[in-house]
Simulated scan of single mutants.
Amino acid sequence: MPRKGIGMRLRNHRGFTLVELLVVIAIIGVLIALLLPAVQQAREAARRMSCSNKQKQLGLALHNYHDTFQIFPHGYFDVGTYHRRDTWMQQLLPFLELNNLADQYKADTNQYVHNMTGSFKTEQLPAFRCPSEAEQDAMGGAGSKVDGGFQGNYIACTGDGYMLYQYAATSTSSTLMQGAFYHQSKTKMSSLLDGTSNTLVFSESICRPGVNGWGGAGGYWGGAPTGSYGFTTAQGPNTTVPDRIYECKTTTFEHAPCVSISTTDEKENFARSYHPGGVMATTADGAVAFFSNTISLQTWKALSTRAGSEVISE
């Protein structure tokens, strides 16, 4: 009798058919489509946590500065014989373990910070960059230089009105600028009559593509008098209303629209971010929270004033 051996078993074996292969590929495609949003959400959650930690460090640096000098750093400074248009950012460098950069900056005796040529001016500082912004840069999004120097995402709160070009910290300017930071501001903890937990000190902004004009949020090296050092709460987070800056070169950037208003003093930069649905912001007590795009404008404005006596609901 013929023997049934290996040869018979091999003749009975068959591989995948084309239909089966296509079904498997389709199933893998569906699984990837289902998993990709979850992966993206997890990555954004990690970036948002990192952004929160960076703002926490800014809040801690602000407290350490206050402990040292009994006052917050000025919003910006535009008088004197050197380092004019210096902002709170340069003042906080030593308190963010960036002493080397701070020493190089102090050693430069140029009258205006935008005329400085040292490498410290273009140094990319992760402490002032939101990871979600950095992700957009990697994808061919916005740039990271403005006014010839490093551009960051974190900006100081000026209040709920226009960001006026003030040359002296007079009673008039301090009355008009209701936030913790403005020209030659000398804010103390005791000045925050609304309470430190009810007063914003920092939030974030979006960098526009390319090398921007003057006054765009986060431009620490020259555009401070035209508003680059801070933001106003005249509009809510991620508003579609354009920023009103001295010179807007990128007018069609949907994430941070802007218009040029070089002939008026009524400048406005608004809080913006790539975080879905809102922005991260820091209050004067050092706490960091996520503020939704749908926050009441009245509440958002109330949080930005240092002594407005507003009642802020939960």
Rank of each mutant, 00 (worst) to 15 (best):
Y76L: 04
F231M: 11
N12V: 07
H183T: 08
N212L: 02
G179F: 02
T175A: 12
G15I: 05
F77S: 12
C51T: 09
S52F: 02
L303A: 03
Q55S: 03
S190M: 08
K301F: 09
I32C: 11
L18A: 12
Y162N: 11
G219N: 00
T252Q: 09
G80T: 12
V211Y: 11
G159C: 08
P94R: 02
P276T: 10
M1N: 08
P237E: 11
A307Q: 14
V241R: 09
F231R: 01
I312V: 14
E44H: 07
T122Q: 14
R14I: 03
L62W: 07
W221Q: 09
G149R: 04
K249W: 07
E204H: 01
R129M: 13
E204A: 08
E204Y: 01
L93V: 00
W221R: 14
D194I: 13
P2H: 10
T87E: 07
P131E: 06
Q70W: 07
Q124D: 09
Q166H: 10
T117A: 08
F16G: 05
N269Q: 05
A234H: 08
Y167L: 14
G7L: 05
C207R: 15
S50G: 13
S313K: 15
H255N: 13
G223S: 03
E247H: 13
D147Y: 06
D67T: 11
D67N: 13
S197G: 06
R3Q: 11
M177E: 04
R208H: 03
T233D: 06
G148R: 03
I6R: 02
A156F: 07
V311L: 01
H275Q: 07
G15D: 04
V24D: 09
D86S: 14
K4P: 05
R84S: 05
K56C: 00
E204T: 03
Y112E: 08
R9Q: 12
R43Q: 14
D67F: 11
G15M: 08
R11V: 10
K56P: 00
G148I: 01
R48I: 02
T172D: 02
A38G: 09
M177Q: 15
D103P: 00
G308D: 05
H13I: 09
Q104I: 02
S190T: 15
